[in-house]
């Protein structure tokens, strides 16, 4: 079997057997998805399905960020702490394949969890307006969120050696992006500087694009689908991803010299 698939298989086992990962990645977004619409009381009934749709989408972003920035970083740090990388480096195995397997596993885990969230959202009354082409575009934006998240997770794991510190740092960063990125607080209520952050950060701008496509532009507060914004989001996601990969290669794939 290809080492990429072997590594992917192992990571999936670890992710699905680790209660902390299940709780932080899946249970927390599910909890908020159920709780948040109930807590908002001054919204007209006609807007409620759209609001539930909006919350479903932002919870998907929260899920992807938790899986990549927090749990991937913590998972790698834990493996480094327990000497797994030293063991693998002594074996005739290409470390990049091992890393690719990890990333693919996180992708699959996030995708399956996302489907669960969407199904629950729909059962709960979430409403999405879309055409097929928009779904394809949304998948593209989800990929960008994933790339940025994986990149950030790898950057954290490259610098932080301790599992707990890496995970907490990832969680903290996830919350910062979530609250300042127009996902928890409406974009129009954010201060100008924070609005700029929300438009520039690839995770928040990609989320805004998905909301714009599937819900309504009123839930976004700006047009994230202008060509300049899309290019910026794609570019920054890719840059974060490649910085993560380069740092990971430097810290893990090379023999110390």
């Amino acid at each position: 079997m290809n080492p990429i698939l072997v590594s992917m298989n192992r990571t999936l086992k670890e992710y699905t057997r680790n209660r902390m990962i299940i709780v932080s990645t899946l249970a927390v977004p599910l909890f908020f998805l159920i709780l948040l619409p109930v807590t908002i009381i001054d919204i007209p009934d006609v807007l409620l399905p759209q609001l539930k749709g909006f919350i479903t989408l932002t919870m998907i972003t929260l899920l992807i960020m938790s899986a990549t920035q927090a749990n991937l970083a913590g998972f790698i740090a834990a493996d480094r702490e327990r000497g797994l990388y030293r063991k693998i480096m002594s074996m005739p195995v290409a470390l990049w394949k091992e890393c690719t397997g990890r990333i693919l596993a996180v992708g699959i885990f996030s995708f399956v969890s996302m489907i669960l969230l969407v199904l629950l959202g729909l059962i709960y009354g979430a409403k999405f307006d879309f055409e097929v082409i928009e779904i394809i575009m949304c998948l593209g934006f989800l990929l960008l969120i994933g790339l940025a998240g994986v990149g950030t997770g790898l950057i954290i794991a490259s610098f932080v050696k301790n599992e707990s510190v890496a995970t907490h740092m990832g969680v903290a960063l996830t919350l910062v992006i979530f609250f300042l990125g127009g996902m928890a607080i409406p974009f129009s209520d954010l201060p100008n500087l924070i609005q700029l952050f929300a438009q520039v950060h690839p995770v928040s701008s990609a989320t805004a694009s998905i909301v714009y496509l599937l819900i309504d532009e009123n839930f976004v507060g700006y047009n994230p689908l202008n060509i300049g914004q899309v290019i910026l989001t794609s570019l920054l996601s890719s840059i974060l991803f490649f910085i993560g990969i380069i740092l990971y290669s430097n810290y893990f794939c090379r023999r110390r010299s």
């Binding site: 080492p3 072997v6 590594s7 057997r17 000497g83 030293r86 063991k87 195995v93």
Partner: peptide, 26 residues
């Protein structure tokens, strides 16, 4: 090579751990 640290995965069974290392090597 067996490093000093406990590198096997506590969340996997003994057999799964061995299978992981053996299959990783092709």
């Amino acid at each position: 090579y067996v490093p000093q640290e406990k590198f096997s995965s506590p969340l996997m069974t003994g057999e799964e751990n061995l299978l992981y290392f053996f299959r990783l090597q092709g």
